[in-house]
C-alpha cells in the first residue's frame, strides 16, 4: 500500500514541478548559482592545495656549519634532524663540494672565477640541506637547533626564499576558505529562501487540493510528499545543470592556470574525481531542496 501511495505522491510532485514552470526555473537558477559557487570554492581549494604540495616538495632550508666542525658532530646533527617530525630529507654538502658547485655555476663569469682563484682558503662552509613537508615545521627546526646543544656549531640558517612564497600561498588558501565559506553560506541561505517561497507559492496554488485532501482524510505525509518531491527535483536539476556547465568551464579556465608554474592540470584533476564530484554535487543539491521544502511544510502547511 505504501508503495502505491509513494508513487502517487511523487507523481503529484512531478506534476507540480512542471505546472509551475517559471517558478521552477527561478528556484533551479538560484540553486545552480549556489552549487556553482560551492564548486568553484572546493575545486580551487583542492587545486591550490595540490600546487602547495608540489612547491613544498621543491624547496628546503640550508644550515651552515662553522668551519672546523668535526665529522662526528656533523653526523650527530644530521641524526638529530632526521628524527624530527616533518623532515623528509637531510643531505650533507662539504665546503669543497660547495666550492665546486659554485665554480660550476659561475663558470661563464670570468671576474668571479678570477677572484675565486685569488683566494687562499675556501671561505665556504659545510652545510646541511633539509626538506620538510610543511613550512610551519621550519620554525620548530629553527628553534630546536638554535636553543639546542648544536647551537655553537652553526653559523647561520638560510631559509630558502620560497618560505615567504609558501607562507603567502598558505595565507591565500586560508582566505579563500574563509571568504568562500561565508559566500557559500550566504548563497545557501538565499537559495533556501527562494526554494522555500517557490514551494509556498505551489502550496497556495494547490490550496483547494490540500483542503480536500485533509477533508477526505489523506495521510499527512501523502500531503507533504509532493512538496518534498518538488524540492528534491529543484536540487536534482540544478546539480545536473551545474555539472554540465562545469566541465566546459574548467576547460576554458585551464590555460590561465599555467601561470602558476605547477604541473597540475585541472582537467585531469576533474577527470580523476568526476564520479565522486558528481555524486557529492547531486547529494548537496537534493539535500538543499529537500531541506527547503521541509522548512516550507513546517512553516506554511497547516495540517
Amino acid at each position: 500500500m505504501w508503495r502505491l501511495s509513494f508513487f502517487r505522491a511523487v507523481k503529484a510532485g512531478i506534476n507540480n514541478f512542471f505546472r509551475n514552470g517559471w517558478l521552477s526555473v527561478t528556484a533551479i537558477s538560484v540553486m545552480a548559482m549556489t552549487l556553482l559557487i560551492v564548486n568553484f570554492l572546493v575545486f580551487s581549494i583542492a587545486l591550490s592545495n595540490m600546487i602547495l604540495e608540489e612547491i613544498r616538495g621543491k624547496i628546503g632550508v640550508n644550515i651552515y656549519l662553522k668551519q672546523g666542525t668535526s665529522q662526528e658532530k656533523i653526523d650527530e646533527i644530521m641524526q638529530d634532524l632526521d628524527v624530527m617530525p616533518g623532515v623528509i630529507e637531510v643531505t650533507y654538502t662539504s665546503s669543497e663540494t660547495a666550492m665546486e658547485n659554485f665554480r660550476e655555476k659561475t663558470k661563464n663569469n670570468k671576474i668571479i672565477q678570477e677572484s675565486l682563484d685569488e683566494l687562499k682558503d675556501n671561505p665556504l662552509e659545510d652545510y646541511l640541506s633539509i626538506r620538510v613537508n610543511d613550512p610551519k615545521k621550519y620554525d620548530i627546526i629553527e628553534s630546536e637547533i638554535i636553543t639546542g646543544v648544536n647551537k655553537e656549531h652553526i653559523s647561520k640558517v638560510d631559509y630558502s626564499e620560497h618560505k615567504t612564497e609558501i607562507e603567502n600561498l598558505d595565507k591565500i588558501i586560508g582566505a579563500i576558505k574563509k571568504g568562500g565559506a561565508i559566500l557559500v553560506l550566504v548563497f545557501i541561505i538565499i537559495s533556501v529562501l527562494v526554494i522555500l517561497n517557490s514551494i509556498r507559492l505551489t502550496m497556495y496554488t494547490y490550496k483547494t487540493e490540500i483542503e480536500i485532501m485533509k477533508l477526505v482524510g489523506a495521510n499527512y505525509w501523502f500531503i507533504k510528499a509532493p512538496f518534498i518531491t518538488e524540492g528534491a527535483l529543484y536540487g536534482f536539476f540544478a546539480s545536473i545543470l551545474v555539472a554540465l556547465a562545469w566541465y566546459p568551464l574548467v576547460i576554458i579556465l585551464t590555460p590561465s592556470f599555467d601561470s602558476f608554474g605547477a604541473s597540475i592540470n585541472p582537467i585531469e584533476v576533474l577527470n580523476n574525481n568526476i564520479v565522486v564530484a558528481l555524486f557529492l554535487q547531486i547529494v548537496l543539491g537534493l539535500s538543499l531542496g529537500v531541506t527547503s521544502s521541509y522548512i516550507a511544510i513546517r512553516r506554511y502547511l497547516r495540517l
Binding site: 500500500m1 505504501w2 480536500i212 489523506a218 501523502f222
Partner: peptide, 11 residues
C-alpha cells in the same frame, strides 16, 4: 477517486 487515492487504496 481522489478520496480513495489519498487513503492508499489500490487502483
Amino acid at each position: 477517486a481522489f478520496a480513495l487515492e489519498v487513503a492508499g487504496k489500490s487502483n
